[in-house]
């Protein structure tokens, strides 16, 4: 009995030590929103993510204040009025790779922005080898789902949903 337990234990420890984990800190997340008056876009080049190839767990994290806008006033409004980055400093995705075939991947999980969490499912491209993992994806986010309120006065300026692009390269942890 004791021997069996030790065997299982060793097996589990061993599976842990061979677990392939990939990490990256210089990913890109950009968003774009087309509106009649003014297109709104921003890019964050300091996105970090980690992927566990054994469990297929995938986690993304970024700082809201790292988004850079072409106009500083937009950036101020984004942080101060809409995303309230002083209260909700980061956005997090915690999920899992649920399907992958010929690099076409589907990821499912919880996306937290502005303190609100929603379940999302995103299709993208994921290329994996021994050394690195490349992830590219594009999806839509509805502002309403994350309680991001746009005052009616400027409603004509800002679309109700934005297009988000993700691009990150992860390297294996040795």
């Amino acid at each position: 009995m004791v021997r069996q337990i030790i065997k299982i234990f060793l097996l589990l420890i061993c599976s842990n030590c061979s677990a392939q984990q990939y990490i990256g800190n210089n990913g890109r997340v950009s968003f774009f929103s087309e509106a009649p008056m003014e297109d709104i876009s921003a890019v964050n080049k300091r996105v970090s993510a980690v992927f566990d190839a054994t469990s297929n767990d995938l986690v993304f994290q970024l700082r809201i204040s790292d988004f850079v806008f072409p106009k500083s006033l937009m950036q101020e409004h984004f942080n101060e009025n809409y995303l309230e980055s002083d209260i909700y400093p980061s956005a997090i995705f915690i999920g899992r790779l649920v399907n992958i075939r010929n690099s076409k991947a589907t990821v499912q999980g919880d996306l937290t922005i502005h303190g609100k969490t929603n379940k999302i499912k995103v299709d993208g491209v994921m290329k994996q080898d021994e050394q690195r993992v490349n992830i590219e994806a594009e999806f839509m986010v509805k502002l309403e789902d994350y309680d991001i309120k746009i005052p009616r006065v400027v409603m004509y300026k800002i679309a109700e949903s934005v297009d988000i692009e993700v691009n990150i390269e992860l390297e294996v942890i040795k």
């Binding site: 009995m1 069996q4 337990i5 299982i8 234990f9 589990l12 984990q21 990490i23 800190n25 970090s48 993510a49 980690v50 566990d52 469990s55 767990d57 986690v59 994290q61 997090i92 915690i94 899992r96």
Partner: peptide, 25 residues
Amino acid sequence: RFILIVALLTSSFANAQDNLLGMLA
């Protein structure tokens, strides 16, 4: 005892994603 250990280990798996989050700088 065996069940206990398995239960313990699986519960540690449930936390795996949080651990991953903790790894991010």
